[in-house]
Simulated assay, not measured.
Amino acid sequence: MATFEFMLPYYGDVSLMQAAVRSILGQSDPDFRLTVIDDGQEPDVPGWFAELGDDRVTYLRNEQNLGITKNFQKCVELSTADHVVIMGCDDLLHPHYLKTVREILKVNPDLGMVQPGVEVIDGGGRVTSGLADNVKEKLYAPTVRGRRLMGGEELAASVLRGNWLYFPSICWRGEALRAVNFRDEYSVIQDLALVVDLLERGEQMMVDNTTVVFQYRRHAVSESSVQAFSGTRFTEAERYFNAVAERMEARGWKKAARAARFRSASRLHALTMLPGALKRGQTAGAKTLVLHALTGGQRH
């Protein structure tokens, strides 16, 4: 039985999903399973998977649309492998992704998470570097030359200050992932919440910058950015940061609590989304963005 599993929650563009699947099947290390959970109704998708003829691939279609968070939760619940990747259905792997992650896990078998090397691509598949990713790299990501083991308050404070991780690229220890899963109450910030939950359980992460093995696709407009223009994303962020700041304080993680209360990256993000909200005539959303940028949504 394969000890490594790719879970692919799918909804949206068929051709991008097919490219993602091909990049998984093109791994130089062939010892894995792929489970696709289709949350859409595109008519030709089941037939395409049937024609693949690869017994490593399992394709499931939801009877009704579950939405992002529920489908992610289903991916976690159906996973069984020792190590799991919940990959974006429009992202791509380099052929040596699995080989590289396995090498890290061979030396560090108890790791809860591995953040491998990532490059960002646009909707057309071209390597790019926009404002969001430059901010991640320059302001919030820790300095890593080669590989660096992180965990506890150090990593919690770092990601609460600004979430520099690329969630779909992360390899998770299956047992730890299934013990936590995604929180029902979040639809946009659920990836950050999951990481912090695992850190509170004592899990550690290896950050690897030795080689790029994953292509993260950043579109001009995504589900999260649509919610950002309306201000919905930041209302959710405020709820999360307020709650997690109290947890960090109770744990004695003072730096992490301060990072959650100040939430600098979230406030900066709100400021950058303001022109787009105004351009789209979303006046109420613009007011929410301004308030979040100025105060982080905290009431004084």
Rank of each mutant, 00 (worst) to 15 (best):
residue 70 K to F: 03
residue 253 W to E: 06
residue 240 Y to Q: 03
residue 215 Q to M: 09
residue 257 A to L: 02
residue 142 P to Q: 14
residue 157 A to V: 02
residue 158 S to K: 05
residue 20 A to L: 01
residue 1 M to R: 08
residue 118 V to T: 12
residue 161 R to W: 11
residue 279 K to H: 10
residue 92 L to S: 04
residue 212 V to F: 03
residue 282 Q to C: 06
residue 294 L to M: 13
residue 72 F to W: 15
residue 8 L to V: 10
residue 83 H to V: 06
residue 186 Y to M: 03
residue 143 T to V: 09
residue 155 L to D: 12
residue 159 V to H: 00
residue 34 L to R: 02
residue 7 M to H: 05
residue 121 I to N: 01
residue 179 A to Y: 00
residue 269 H to L: 09
residue 113 M to A: 04
residue 102 R to W: 01
residue 74 K to L: 11
residue 127 V to M: 03
residue 235 T to W: 04
residue 102 R to C: 01
residue 143 T to N: 14
residue 74 K to V: 00
residue 23 S to W: 02
residue 169 S to H: 03
residue 293 A to R: 08
residue 130 G to V: 02
residue 124 G to R: 11
residue 51 E to S: 10
residue 248 M to D: 07
residue 173 R to M: 07
residue 265 A to H: 13
residue 37 I to C: 05
residue 253 W to P: 08
residue 45 V to L: 13
residue 216 Y to F: 15
residue 2 A to V: 09
residue 12 G to H: 04
residue 284 A to W: 03
residue 63 E to W: 05
residue 215 Q to R: 10
residue 238 E to G: 15
residue 249 E to M: 14
residue 147 R to M: 12
residue 31 D to E: 13
residue 82 D to F: 02
residue 97 Y to T: 02
residue 92 L to K: 04
residue 270 A to E: 07
residue 275 P to H: 06
residue 156 A to R: 00
residue 121 I to D: 01
residue 101 V to C: 10
residue 258 R to C: 11
residue 233 R to S: 11
residue 125 G to T: 00
residue 47 G to Q: 15
residue 28 S to Y: 08
residue 256 A to K: 09
residue 5 E to Q: 15
residue 181 N to I: 01
residue 185 E to W: 03
residue 256 A to R: 11
residue 261 R to I: 06
residue 47 G to C: 07
residue 78 L to T: 02
residue 136 K to S: 07
residue 58 T to F: 08
residue 190 Q to L: 10
residue 231 G to F: 04
residue 170 I to V: 15
residue 210 T to M: 10
residue 175 E to F: 01
residue 47 G to T: 11
residue 76 V to I: 08
residue 184 D to F: 12
residue 94 H to F: 08
residue 173 R to Y: 11
residue 103 E to N: 12
residue 144 V to K: 01
residue 58 T to L: 10
residue 48 W to V: 08
residue 170 I to G: 01
residue 90 D to M: 02
residue 145 R to Q: 14
residue 21 V to L: 00
residue 52 L to S: 08
residue 289 L to G: 05
residue 152 G to D: 09
residue 21 V to P: 00
residue 114 V to D: 01
residue 157 A to L: 02
residue 182 F to K: 10
residue 235 T to H: 12
residue 79 S to A: 15
residue 229 F to T: 13
residue 289 L to R: 00
residue 146 G to N: 05
residue 257 A to K: 04
residue 234 F to G: 14
residue 93 L to T: 00
residue 27 Q to C: 07
residue 60 L to P: 06
residue 56 R to D: 04
residue 49 F to T: 01
residue 215 Q to D: 06
residue 11 Y to T: 07
residue 217 R to E: 00
residue 40 G to P: 07
residue 44 D to F: 02
residue 199 L to Q: 13
residue 36 V to L: 11
residue 161 R to H: 14
residue 2 A to E: 04
residue 86 I to C: 07
residue 296 G to V: 03
residue 266 S to V: 13
residue 9 P to E: 05
residue 46 P to S: 02
residue 29 D to R: 02
residue 85 V to L: 10
residue 38 D to C: 07
residue 121 I to E: 03
residue 65 N to Y: 08
residue 209 N to G: 08
residue 251 R to S: 06
residue 153 E to V: 05
residue 155 L to W: 12
residue 209 N to L: 05
residue 234 F to S: 11
residue 59 Y to P: 05
residue 17 M to L: 13
residue 150 M to F: 12
residue 296 G to I: 07
residue 49 F to E: 02
residue 267 R to S: 07
residue 206 M to C: 13
residue 16 L to I: 06
residue 264 S to M: 12
residue 154 E to C: 03
residue 2 A to T: 12
residue 268 L to R: 11
residue 119 E to M: 11
residue 8 L to W: 10
residue 254 K to E: 15
